[in-house]
Amino acid sequence: MPAPVLKTVDLSRTVIIGPETRPILQNISFAVQPGEVLAITGPSGAGKSTLLRLLNRLDEPSSGDVLVHGTSFRSLSPRELRRRLGMVMQRAFLFPGTVYGNVRYGPAQHGVPFSNRDADALLEQVGMAGYGDRDALTLSGGEAQRISIARTLANQPEVLLLDEPTSALDPDAKQAVELLLARVVRERQVACAWVTHDYAQARRVADRILRIEAGAVTALGTPAAVLLEQE
């Protein structure tokens, strides 16, 4: 078995709201292999988004560890961690300007040369060939999400963190983006943590499923095992 690209050990987050400390996530441990999709499911408010945000440190874990190829996140700079763990959110949040400008953004932040030709190759992969000079803010939801995927891939991440990447899309775009993401994971052999509240989608894309309820893991295993227990 190959070494996990991404591993968490007892990852927890509590927040202080007024006089109370409230646990949002408690002792989450899992590992994801290269080319593997781990679907993260659970009811709304369970802590799925928070979990992804702990992985690339948009939120701060209270305790526990995130290991990237065995290296603790605490010994990486947040920027380096975030370059290696690419994230796609529910909404695209494209930056004003052209599609090229968006795709180039990540490499530009790290001083990595990135030509329009490199961008064209990525746009081709996400089914958006020829869109480079378009105004990013005039794209449809599905188009924008494809651009945000290209923008994330431009950083050459080893891990993809997907936070309900298809849930804001109409049914046609949803299916196309789902297929695109599954193909990207396979072709690039990235480790993928894919949050979805759609069990049918989890069954289609996941190698394993992690179920979270009220901030704690309630199931971790193959889709057949986890979803069978569910029903």
Partner: peptide, 20 residues
């Protein structure tokens, strides 16, 4: 917030993420 955290998630310096 969405745009800023997207920029951070791409590895932007905080100063760059909030520049606009």
């Amino acid at each position: 917030r969405g745009e800023i955290e997207s920029a951070l998630a791409l590895g932007a310096q905080p100063e760059a993420a909030v520049a606009p």
